[in-house]
Design a protein around this nucleic acid. Structure first.
Lengths: 148, 148
DNA sequence: AACAATACTTGTAAAATACAAATTAAAAGG
DNA sequence: CCTTTTAATTTGTATTTTACAAGTATTGTT
């Protein structure tokens, strides 16, 4: 467990699992992709289709259909922009907001549980490191450019 | 950019992208899932179908079909175990091994590039932190249990 | 020998994905 | 203004991925 790539491979996989398991609220069970979409709509200010699709590096045509199902699930609304009718502004419904905050809480629980296996100092080091890593990735040319 | 969940959300997404973009060798272009399968077959000693599927938390029936396509792509072989004919032992073909090492090299390049945006001390801190995090996750009950 | 358990595959059906082409609306050029 | 171009999004189509239920084949158990 000492080479860089191996460390990241395992980490990636585990995050994938964490995201996969995170996201059921009551009877409704949503996919990782859907949870990321909801997360971003919640976070960004009056985002358009293209903005979210780009942030998540999802093909726009695929995204269009994903939004359609999220609308059917009554988690998201899509309204034409007043300035420019080519754009649609995405937003969460009340149910969607509830979903977002439930997922948020559940993810925070997961993360807290994971962090509870480290001491105070380790926890801070890890958080600081992830910030460093995110920062380094955002400067990198090999990945991650569209993602904030 | 200061809450735990946000940090992990962005990190997860970027790793996803990194894995997505990593994996084309010449004309052959393989998916993230396939690259993880190849990685694990390469790493484990004479693994069976179930072992890899479990390591990667993939449904066995899905996995069965994924292996079928990897065999068609001539990257993987599947031979019945001599002791117990219910088992199949998976292995990489020469081409598969080449693919594995090419992906390995390319991922290492990516990671080196990313790490190059940090100083020596930061790099070591980050690596140490990821080890800590992996360790904490492996102790956690909320995720990651089957994954090594 | 009969029955259960194990490892894996197939039937089927739904969901996710992405390219090309279509639609609609705004901007730009003449 | 009217035509042409560009931009944001959707639909047609076809492939791939996924997973549940049921099936096959092999081994273990009584």
């Amino acid at each position: 467990m000492d080479n860089k790539r191996e460390l990241f491979q395992v980490l990636t996989r585990r995050f994938g699992l964490l995201n996969k398991n995170c996201c059921s609220v009551g009877a409704i069970d949503i996919s990782t992709v859907h949870s990321h979409i909801i997360y971003e709509i919640d976070k960004q200010h009056e985002p358009t289709m293209q903005q979210i699709a780009e942030t998540l590096a999802i093909d726009v045509t695929t995204f269009s259909r994903q939004i359609q199902t999220l609308i059917k699930m009554e988690l998201v609304t899509k309204s034409p922009s007043l300035n420019d009718k080519r754009f649609y502004v995405l937003a969460l419904t009340t149910q969607g907001k509830f979903m977002a905050s439930t997922i948020e809480a559940s993810m925070n629980n997961y993360l807290d549980e994971i962090f509870s296996h480290m001491n105070e100092f380790e926890q801070e080091t890890v958080l600081r490191s992830i910030k460093l890593l995110n920062n380094a990735m955002s400067k990198s040319s090999v990945c991650c450019t569209p993602l904030m």
